[in-house]
């Protein structure tokens, strides 16, 4: 299997951003707000992640696992397959944990997916970090005031309703905070943040199907 080289017309922006991120990680640059490269949110980061043709700019990397230690701005991560990652956060790293947040919200024990650039010292400078994010196909099994009970495969799962955050979309409709149309037996896609302390999931969005 081989990866194609994209011919995106906006590939130059991805290259510039990647070089910028690498520089930020190596030099400890401080970036406040948007830069000349555009916004530093995750959507902007992934608008054109074209593999670089410049051999000085390494290809994007991906990491997953659970955080075992936090040393300054470096996360030590035990990969689920037994490996280990060192993930360097920079001021250009976008971080999501139920909502866009900052490095202070990241804790030992959290699970993560990260995308970034491999660095010469063996770390990965992260473009984006998704902490405890899950996107699960489940079935509604119970409904309470502040939580929903789901079946996820052969397992049960508690979904917590987060006031001001949890939203639902019914049959491809617009997002709403009104959860009154959720019914037992419905197929639902839940995007949220897993809570390592009790195994439940804080619900960001529910897509309710047929």
């Amino acid at each position: 299997m081989s990866s194609p080289r994209s011919t995106s017309a906006s590939g130059g922006r991805g290259l510039d951003r990647r070089r910028f991120l690498t520089t930020a990680a190596l030099g400890g640059a401080t970036i406040v707000g948007a830069s000349a490269l555009g916004g530093l949110d995750a959507d902007a980061a992934f608008a054109a992640p074209t593999p670089s043709l410049d051999p000085a700019v390494p290809a994007a990397a991906f990491a997953e696992g659970r955080i075992t230690a936090i040393n300054g701005s470096v996360l030590e991560v035990a990969a689920s397959n037994g490996g280990r990652h060192l993930i360097q956060l920079t001021n250009a790293t976008s971080i999501w944990k139920l909502e866009p947040t900052t490095a202070e919200a990241v804790k030992v024990g959290d699970g993560l997916y990260a995308r970034g650039v491999p660095m010469p010292d063996g770390t990965m400078a992260a473009d984006a970090l998704w902490v405890n994010i899950v996107n699960l196909a489940v079935t509604v099994r119970g409904i309470a005031k502040d939580r929903l009970h789901f079946a996820h495969g052969a397992h049960g799962l508690v979904g917590r309703v987060v006031p001001g955050t949890t939203a639902a979309s019914y049959l491809a409709g617009a997002l709403t905070s009104d959860l009154s149309q959720v019914r037992i037996g419905q197929s639902v896609q839940v995007l949220g943040a897993w809570r390592p302390e009790d195994g439940s999931v804080d619900i960001a969005r529910m897509t309710v199907g047929h």
Partner: peptide, 22 residues
């Protein structure tokens, strides 16, 4: 964006029928 990724089919899904029209 035009960004692309090469993937290998390794599972069955998604459950398309549950979200017709989305």
């Amino acid at each position: 964006s035009g960004s692309s990724v090469c993937v290998t089919v390794s599972d069955c899904g998604p459950r398309t029928k549950s979200f017709c029209g989305e």
